[in-house]
Simulated scan of single mutants.
Amino acid sequence: MNEDLEFRPARPADTARILEIIRQAQAQMRALGSRQWQDGYPARENIDCDIARGWGYVFSKPAAETCGTADTKAATVGNSGTVIAYGAMLFDGEPAYEAIEGAWLTEGDYVVLHRLAVADGEKGRGVAAEFMRRVEAAARERGAGSFRVDTNFDNRYMLRLLERLGFAYCGKIHYESGERLAFEKPLGL
Rank of each mutant, 00 (worst) to 15 (best):
R180F: 06
A99E: 11
A25N: 07
G126N: 15
T106F: 08
G124A: 15
A139R: 07
A144H: 03
S34F: 06
D120E: 15
D154N: 04
H114L: 10
M132I: 10
R160E: 14
R11F: 05
R164G: 10
G143F: 00
G68Q: 13
I21C: 12
T76Y: 00
L159V: 06
R164H: 10
A103M: 12
A75W: 01
R164V: 08
I84S: 09
G108C: 14
A168T: 09
A25F: 11
E176I: 11
T82P: 04
F167W: 07
F183E: 02
I18C: 11
G188P: 01
I173F: 13
E98V: 10
M158C: 15
T82G: 11
L165F: 09
D150Y: 04
A137L: 11
I18V: 10
A103L: 07
G33S: 04
N79P: 00
P9M: 05
G87L: 01
M158D: 14
P42C: 12
L189T: 03
Q26F: 04
Q24H: 06
D154Y: 03
A52N: 00
L181S: 05
G54W: 01
G56S: 10
F167N: 02
T76H: 02
F59D: 06
V83Y: 08
P95E: 12
Y86Q: 09
L32C: 09
E107H: 13
D39S: 08
L5G: 00
A63L: 12
G143H: 02
L116V: 14
A25D: 02
A52Y: 00
R35C: 12
W104R: 00
D48I: 05
A119N: 02
D48M: 06
I173Y: 09
K73A: 15
L159D: 04
M132F: 09
D4P: 02
N46E: 14
A16T: 15
G81D: 04
R142S: 04
R23G: 06
F147M: 05
Y157R: 11
I18Y: 05
E179G: 03
F91I: 13
A31S: 14
G126C: 14
R164E: 10
C170H: 08
G102A: 06
Y157P: 15
G33T: 01
R23C: 09
L116G: 14
E98R: 15
G108K: 14
Q38V: 07
I173K: 12
K185M: 08
C49S: 15
Q24M: 03
L90P: 00
R142D: 06
T106N: 05
A137W: 04
D92Y: 03
A70T: 08
T106K: 07
